Amino acid sequence: MTLLRACAQRPFPALLCAAGLAFALIPTPAAAQDDPDEVSDEDEDEDDDEVMEFDAVPMDRPSGEVPTGATETPVPPKEFDAPPEIVEETGPPPPRVYPVELALRPVALLPGVAEVGLDAPLFVSPAAVTTTLRARYGVIDHLELGLRYGIVAADEDGGVSGKTVGIDITGPITDWVAAQLTVPILLDPFAMGITLGAPLKFHLGRSLGLFFGRDLVSVRVSKFVPSIDDPRVNRGLLAALDTNTTVSRGDLRFIGGIIYQIQPNLAVTADGGVVAPDFRGESAQVPLGGTVTWSPLSALDLAARLGFADLGDGDTFGLTFGAAARL
């Protein structure tokens, strides 16, 4: 403001002041330039596009030395767009099914399978019939429990009540071998025995089966070894004890056989062996017979056996009918 007042008081100097003021308002070239520290976005883009070039400098390596990584096989990068690998989930194995084919059946029932059966042997001379009810159940993989009951026997001398119970315990070791314990008990009057066995069951292909080892040895525990299947035998042993006659202490049984599977639901069986009553070979018996088994349903068996309890005794010839249903 002081400069303007001075210029107004003196006209000539006022012209000089106006010229100086106009010259002061004209920007200088240095001021028109941008701040060197401020870089525009365009300049940054141009710098990014520039390719840095380096001069290759050879490296001296010892003779025969292979550079690191020269022998490595590069692994291709993972393709992110590749579909994910499908992993099939495997569930628990399907449950085992008890075979319809007689030749393929294991030595004992599968766990959870129950079977109920009835056997009725018919003898020719003298005419007689006996009936035995049996049941067994697969408890676990290595345990099968069974129960047999001799219901009744009838012959020319009349009927005989069974009153005999057989407790069967089978411990399968594998599908083809097991340990067996049977306890036959006569309820009235009391008599008891023990029977041990090692049942074996093999199959050759799908048509042939072999079995052996059931009821190998029987030993009396009290009085005599009761017969579960034929109450007439027990009646004879009781009569012998009443007359102070010595009765058998037990017996050895070596019985085996072969199964031929004609069709999946039809099989024939031939069985035979040697039995030594009272553990003496001079009175050995030779059982021999054949059985036809037909399974009209997967859980139902019908069987008929023709043969001898002792080949040397014609009175032991008979025909046995049997039926078994699995639940």
Rank of each mutant, 00 (worst) to 15 (best):
Q180H: 13
L122E: 05
L3F: 12
D119F: 00
F279D: 06
V51I: 12
I262M: 14
L25W: 01
Y260V: 13
G193A: 00
T195V: 15
A198K: 08
D48N: 08
R235N: 06
G322D: 04
D119A: 08
I185V: 15
F321D: 00
L252I: 13
I262G: 12
P126K: 02
G318Q: 04
L21V: 11
A191R: 04
V165L: 13
S283H: 10
L241A: 06
Y149A: 07
S283W: 02
G166W: 11
S248Q: 05
G290V: 11
V124N: 07
A198Y: 07
P84F: 00
L3N: 14
F254Q: 07
L186V: 04
F321S: 05
D45Y: 12
A309I: 09
L306Q: 06
G112S: 03
L210V: 15
S283Y: 02
A304T: 00
L196D: 03
A309G: 13
P92K: 02
I86G: 11
T195D: 13
V139K: 03
Q285N: 01
F308Y: 03
G166H: 03
I151A: 15
L196T: 11
A31H: 15
G166K: 09
L237T: 05
G289W: 05
C7V: 14
L210C: 03
P99R: 11
V75T: 15
P126T: 06
T243D: 15
I169E: 04
F54I: 01
F279A: 04
G117C: 06
R61H: 14
S222D: 02
P184T: 04
E72A: 09
Q33P: 03
L4D: 14
G146T: 00
A114F: 07
G146D: 07
V217Q: 06
G209T: 08
P111R: 04
E53T: 13
S207V: 08
F123M: 14
P36W: 01
V39K: 05
A120F: 01
